[in-house]
Design a protein around this nucleic acid. Structure first.
Length: 468
DNA sequence: CTACATGATTACGC
DNA sequence: GCGTAATCATGTAG
């Protein structure tokens, strides 16, 4: 029933609209269009008025509320209720302990010199890295500076990012605080809640910061591991350095444990000998070298026999020239290593033992000769010469020693050319067993033929320091 | 490319 | 902290 008229009405309205439009388009009926425009304008005006009115009204109401004498009390009550309901639930989470992971990251960044004071930290960390790698720290400055440069790069990026984050955090916090303060005029927002909100924002940003710290740490670790890897990279010592080390080793075969000073000496000498720009040889490298040498020599003496003979011969020659001429004019490296090191580091602490060995000197010489085929015995030659030198200093008859040595060298050469003559030595080994035992004492399990043959221990231990 | 040489590192004991 | 033994990883000669 109603349907019809309504439809009709709507239709009518629709139809009423259309003709107007058509008319307008036709360019006819302008007055009618003007009237409609006016209508729309009126409507808009009305709407605007209404909005303004309502806004004003709202403002007025808001103002009235704010100015209401009950407002502060009401507000505080509402706040209180809110605190009790919402905040108390979250209250437990409020005070979380400092994140251990974050602390770790912070500590690491500090240790690596990323977050510490400006320049010192970086180089300190580089030095630490170098120390960890077993280096001296002063060497490989090129690698060092490279490391430092990259570290400071990381550092810079880190600080820039951190600053950015902090700034963003502050901006956002300020913004939110303003917003909340503004809102607090209309809804119950206590300062405490604002504080809490700020806390949440800070936590969010600190989690972002943690990511930054984490990635910075990763970058530092990668850099560091590369730095260490670079150092770890093996480079063979050059021939001269190896010779110096070998000379020392074989001339102290009975006790191839250079003292700290001896190591320093050797390291210096090797580095100097490496006249080129090549890498310096550090103390730890000398230690490594001796460690490796000892173990490898011990494992396969046969393999090193020839080498041992060669160096023993050299040592003998140099020692001869030393004791015969009292100077080391020729071949700078060889006599030096045989001479200086012994005197300075290896001989001095064992002066009593050396004195002890005086009476044994001739037999030792014999042993040297006879045992030349076995590197172990050869080793004693070096020690022997060493003690001879010191004995010289102790006003032992130099001439006699010189003669002894000379004859040894001659025999040595002969024996070396033969490479046999080992079995003969056994008997003589017995004669100088103190020396052999010495060798066994300090350089114990050396499964050298001579060491095997060397018998008793009793007196040996007494003299064992001779070679030391 | 392979085998060996060799400097460096690591695990362990003292 | 040093030494040993084992091992890794690279250099080098063939």
């Amino acid at each position: 029933m109603d349907e019809q008229p309504r439809l009709m009405h709507s239709h009518g309205v629709g139809m009423a609209g259309h003709p107007g439009l058509a008319q307008h388009m036709d360019g006819t009926g302008g007055t009618d269009g003007e009237g409609r425009k006016q209508d729309i304008g009126d409507i808009l005006q009305q709407i605007m008025t209404i909005t303004d009115q309502s806004l004003d009204e709202a403002q007025a109401r808001k103002h009235a509320l704010n100015c209401h004498r009950m407002k502060p009390a009401l507000f505080s009550v509402l706040c209180e209720i809110k605190e009790k309901t919402v905040l108390s639930i979250r209250g437990a989470q409020e005070e979380e302990p400092p994140d251990p992971q974050l602390m770790r990251l912070d500590n690491m960044l500090l240790a690596e010199g990323v977050s510490g004071p400006e320049k010192g930290g970086g180089s300190a960390a580089a030095a630490a890295a170098a120390a960890a790698a077993g280096g001296v720290g002063a060497d490989n400055s090129a690698e060092h500076s490279d490391y430092r440069a990259k570290l400071s790069q990381i550092r810079q990026i880190y600080h820039t990012e951190l600053e950015k984050y902090e700034q963003a955090c502050n901006e956002f916090t300020t913004h939110v605080m303003n917003l909340l303060r503004e809102q607090s005029r209309t809804r119950p927002i206590s300062p405490k809640e604002i504080e809490r909100m700020v806390g949440i924002i800070h936590r969010k940003f600190s989690s972002i910061q943690m990511q930054l710290k984490q990635s910075t740490c990763e970058a530092v670790m990668i850099l560091r591991s590369r730095f260490l890897d670079a150092r770890r990279k093996r480079r063979n010592f050059n021939k001269q350095a190896t010779e110096i080390l070998n000379e020392y080793f074989y001339s102290h075969l009975s006790n191839p444990y250079p003292s700290e000073e001896a190591k320093e000496e050797l390291a210096k000498k090797c580095s100097i000998t490496v006249a080129q720009v090549g890498p310096q040889i550090t103390l730890s490298q000398v230690s490594n070298w001796f460690g490796n040498k000892r173990i490898r020599y011990k494992k396969n003496i046969g393999k090193f026999q020839e080498e041992a003979n060669m160096y023993a011969a050299r040592t003998a020659v140099s020692a001869t020239s030393v004791s015969a001429h009292g100077s080391q004019a020729n071949s700078p490296s060889t006599p030096n290593s045989a001479g200086e090191c012994h005197e300075k580091s290896l001989l001095e602490p064992r002066a009593d033992a050396v004195k002890d060995s005086i009476s044994h000197t001739p037999p030792i010489c014999i042993s040297l000769i006879s045992g030349s085929a076995g590197s172990f015995n050869m080793s004693n030659s070096g020690d022997l010469f060493m003690s001879v030198q010191s004995l010289n200093g102790d006003s032992y008859q130099g001439a006699q020693v010189g003669a002894n040595v000379q004859s040894q060298v001659d025999t040595l050469r002969h024996v070396i050319s033969q490479t046999g003559g080992y079995s003969d030595s056994l008997a003589v080994n017995q004669m100088y067993s103190p020396q052999g035992i010495n060798a066994n004492g300090g350089w114990q399990d050396a499964p050298t033929p001579s060491s095997v043959t060397s018998p008793t221990e009793g007196p040996g231990s007494v003299h064992s320091d001779t070679s030391n």
